[in-house]
Simulated assay, not measured.
Amino acid sequence: MKEHTNRKLNKELKIGLFLISLFVIWAIAWTVYSNFIAGSISSPYLPIATISNELLSPSSLFPLGTDIYGRSLLEVISEGLIYSLTLAIIVSFIAAAIGIIIGYITAEGRGFLKYFCDLSTNLIFIFPSILIAIMVMSVVGQSMSGLIVTMIFTGWPSYAKVARGEAQRVLSLSYVESARAVGVSETRLFLKTVLPSILPVLIVNFVLGISGVIVSEATLGFLGLGGSEYSWGNLLSMGKTVLLEAPYIVVFLSVILGTLIIGLNLLGDGLRDFIDPRKSS
C-alpha cells in the first residue's frame, strides 16, 4: 500500500512538472517573440486590434480565433500568461518574505510587537481575502501596482501562520536550546537553523500560493478590478458578453486557466511529499 501511494505521489509531481514546463516554455517563447522578433525590449509587441477581424472563429490564421476587438486570442492569452505569472511570482515572493518574518516574531517575539503581529495576522486571515482585495482595490485604484499591494496585503498571513507553526516546532528542539545556551544570537539562530528547517514547507506553500494568486487575480479581473486589459479574468468577463456568438473565448480561456491551476496544485502536492520534513518515512 505504501509503495502504491509513493508511485501515485511521484506521478502527481511528474504531471505537475510537465504541465508547468509547458506554460514556462510558452511564456519564454512569447517573451522572445514579443521583445526580439516582432518588437523590441523598449517597445515590445502587443496584440493588435483590427475591427474587421472581430470575433473570427479559430482558423489557420487565428488558431484560437479573435476577440471582440479583432485581436488574435492566442496572442492576447499569451500576453495574459506573462502578466499572470509575473504578478503571481512577485506577490508570492514578497508575501512569503513578510510572512516568514512576522511568523517568526509571533513564535519567538515578546511584548507588544508579538501581540500586534499575532493580532494583525488573525484579523486579516479570518476575513475573506477577496472582500479585502475588493475594498483595497477600491481605495488604491485599478493598476498593476495597486493589485500587487492588494494581493500582498491579503497573502502574507497564510505564510505567517505556516512560519509560526514550523518555527515553534524547530525552536522546541533540544539542539536549538543548546545553541542558545552557548550564546548563539537570535539572528544567527534564525538564519542558520530556523530558516533552513522551515524552508521546505514554505516552498510547497509558495508553489500553492502562486496558484492562489492567479485565481484571485482572475477573480478581481472578472469583477473589473484587474490591473491589466490582458488579465485572464478580464478576458473571461469579455467572453461572457459574447458567449452565444463566440463561445470559444470562454472555452479556451477556461481550459488554459484550469490546466495551469491543476499543474501548480499537482506540483505543490508532489513537492509536499518529497520535501516536507513531516512526511512519514
Rank of each mutant, 00 (worst) to 15 (best):
S129E: 13
L131R: 00
A133W: 09
A133S: 14
V136P: 03
V136D: 02
V136K: 01
V136A: 02
V139N: 03
V139Y: 13
V140I: 14
V140N: 05
V140L: 12
V140W: 05
G141Q: 08
S143H: 09
S143G: 09
S145I: 15
G146T: 04
G146Q: 03
L147Q: 05
L147R: 07
I148L: 14
I148G: 12
V149E: 02
T150Y: 04
M151K: 02
M151W: 01
I152S: 01
I152L: 04
P157S: 02
P157N: 03
P157K: 01
S158L: 09
S158G: 14
Y159K: 09
A160N: 10
A160M: 13
A160I: 14
K161V: 15
K161L: 15
K161Q: 14
K161W: 15
V162Y: 10
A163G: 11
R164S: 09
R164A: 08
G165R: 12
E166R: 08
A167G: 14
Q168L: 14
S172V: 06
L173N: 11
L173A: 08
L173V: 01
S174H: 10
S174E: 15
S174K: 14
S174G: 07
Y175A: 01
Y175Q: 01
V176R: 00
E177C: 03
E177F: 04
E177V: 07
E177G: 11
A179D: 05
R180H: 11
V182A: 03
V182T: 12
G183E: 09
G183R: 07
E186H: 11
E186I: 02
T187M: 10
R188C: 04
R188V: 11
F190K: 05
F190E: 09
L191E: 02
K192T: 07
V194R: 05
V194L: 15
L195S: 12
L195R: 11
P196Q: 01
S197W: 12
I198G: 05
L199I: 08
L199W: 15
P200C: 01
P200Q: 02
P200F: 04
